[in-house]
Simulated scan of single mutants.
Amino acid sequence: MKVLGIETSCDETGVAVYDTDLGLRAHALYSQIALHAQYGGVVPELASRDHVRKLLPLVRQTLAESGMTVDEIDGVAYTAGPGLVGALLVGAGVARSLAWALDVPAVAVHHMEGHLLAPLIEDDPQGRPQPPFVALLVSGGHTQLVAVDAIGRYRLLGETLDDAAGEAFDKTAKLMGLPYPGGPQLAALAEQGRPGTYRFPRPMTNRPGLDFSFSGLKTQVLLAWRDSEQSDEARADIARGFEDAVVDTLAIKCERALDEAGCETLVVAGGVGANKRLRAKLADMAQRRGGRVCFPRPAFCTDNGAMIAFAGALRLLAGQHEDAAVRVTPRWDMATLPEVGGQV
């Protein structure tokens, strides 16, 4: 089955073609960072308009790169939530229209399930991880630990009580004067920082449970920055201290989650999953336990069409699809999804 995937949940327009026999055929991504940078964050109306402008050209580009024509598409998958309602409606409208015109099924994909399944797209010498496993979903909008009992059957083990990890990266960067989007720049700056110069608390690791909290850590960084000489060296050292605190916290909670779930396979997805220090820390932890950790390639950590095409293909193969109505779900609990039977 050849599935066209469309992702327009926020500020990135993603399109991909996934072939269940041959794997990923092509993918393309357009980022709106330059558009929103002058405002210091995403402006929903501008995001929706830019999706309108870019989506159809990206569909044509992706099909051309895949060596396929639109008539060869067997199904269409699109992000239906969570996300910005206007942005979601752009992708859903185009996807439903294409599916109707081609007389093929269309399936609504949960954005976070797409992220959760993104590592499974990769060619892994050990094979794709099969449930049960634990997933760490860590991005600008979400920080969650999820027990994956089967594809489509998810149990929330813990989540952030305030800022998501990626959001904390972005806000901390802004506090220290780094331009939007600050998270990746803060991580790059941390590479220059001296470890241990600033040591910040590892929030909520001194008590039982799998929930997270990063707002207090952000405040500690603000106080340290105000009390410093605010030089480039101090900025780098504080960035390193902040990153180490976030990475250690995530690793501690992941290990607890593996213990609670009784398994040794960890899947990591979401934008913060591209962080080099986090990858190294979790890989060391998995090796020490004799387990396994799986990441998507960095390009598939952020929002992308490939994860939507892949997740949609699994559901279309299971016989799941939508009716002709155009619907989106800006707030959508992943626990309400139907299960997908069989092996991935």
Rank of each mutant, 00 (worst) to 15 (best):
I151E: 00
E113G: 09
A283M: 14
E260C: 06
L98C: 09
D244L: 11
L266H: 10
E243Y: 11
E264K: 14
Y154L: 10
T13L: 09
E322N: 14
I308L: 01
A239L: 07
G83S: 11
T302E: 07
G305F: 03
A95G: 13
C254Y: 09
R226M: 14
L314S: 05
A92F: 05
L157Y: 10
A108K: 07
A87G: 10
A257R: 04
A299P: 00
A150H: 07
I121Q: 05
Q185M: 12
T249R: 06
Y18P: 00
L137E: 06
G141W: 05
L137S: 05
R235G: 02
P195L: 04
P338A: 06
G114K: 06
V340K: 09
A135D: 08
G86Q: 11
W332F: 11
C254V: 03
A236Y: 07
D163A: 00
P208A: 02
G216Y: 02
D71M: 05
C254W: 00
H321E: 08
M307N: 05
Y180E: 05
D248L: 07
R327L: 15
K281M: 14
M307H: 07
G193P: 10
P203W: 08
E12T: 09
D103Y: 02
P203I: 04
K174W: 06
L250H: 03
F310E: 04
K218W: 01
Y30I: 13
R256G: 15
D170K: 02
G141L: 09
V42M: 07
K281W: 01
D103N: 15
V247Y: 08
R331G: 04
H321S: 14
G319M: 05
T249F: 10
L120G: 03
V59E: 04
G271V: 12
I6E: 05
I6D: 10
R49L: 11
E113Y: 12
W225G: 03
A318Q: 12
E45R: 13
G342H: 11
L24S: 14
R60C: 04
H27I: 02
A236D: 09
A311F: 05
T265K: 06
L98M: 15
D323E: 12
A47N: 07
L210Y: 04
A95L: 03
L278M: 06
A324H: 15
A245N: 03
E260P: 01
A168K: 12
I73W: 12
S213D: 01
T69Q: 08
F295L: 02
M285R: 08
A325L: 13
V134Y: 11
H110S: 01
T13R: 10
E72C: 01
M285V: 10
L102C: 13
R279L: 06
R153H: 15
G67W: 01
M176V: 10
Q38N: 07
H111F: 11
R240Y: 04
Y154N: 13
V43N: 04
I238G: 02
T172K: 02
V85L: 09
